[in-house]
Amino acid sequence: MVERLIPTALVEDNKFCPGCGHGIINRILAEVLDEMKLTDKAIGSMAVGCACLMVDTFGVDWIQSPHGRAAALATGIKRCRPENPVFTYQGDGDSMSIGFSETMYAAFRNENITAILVNNGIFGMTGGQMAPTSLPGQKTVTSPMGRNTDLTGQPLNIINQMKDLNIGYLARGSVTSIKNINRVKKYIRNAFETQMSGGGYSMVEILSPCPTNWKMMPDKSLEHIDNTVTTYYPLGEYVKKGGDSNE
């Protein structure tokens, strides 16, 4: 049995809603940074949305970018400070809607950074509007009759956009169970190992519950991810040129 202590980067209680997956993802990210002894060197690039609530609670150097531009900021930081682990932490609205271009081009250039993209299929901070990742028929405050894919497109699968690029590491996990959480932790570790060995762009997309804006109880939110969301966004490792942790 090993000790399970709160990792050092979690310097304050998080500010997320009850049942929000960000809290779990924050913790496993902080664990990986501690275990790899990267907490003191890491520089995070965040933009807007619920992710920016971490700026006071997650104790690494942070730079806050304009909406969507976190990967461009991370590019500037990493080119200047190649020895430091540089990561982005963004939601799906931020990284895949307004920041689609910056997200994709960082991958396209194979920037040696790690992207943590948290996909809850909705704009959380702004109050539950439809995102590019929302599911067909999903009711949100801007798709009150359910998402009409004829008019708004199919759910955006960012991994399908990236998997044929020349990048280092690409994986998708979820935080719905102990098994899945442990798997995501390995993915995040693989991503940072890829970066620290100079292996190029690494990205982990994490399916995460937003009980508040899904208007669903937390336990039902986890079931919804397992039963429905993963049929659109299958879990697994898609590109693995770096990282040592095997499942």
Partner: peptide, 12 residues
């Protein structure tokens, strides 16, 4: 948009 944000990162 990306260019000025890269500059933002480098300045930081």
């Amino acid at each position: 948009l990306a260019g000025i944000s890269m500059v933002h990162g480098a300045a930081a």
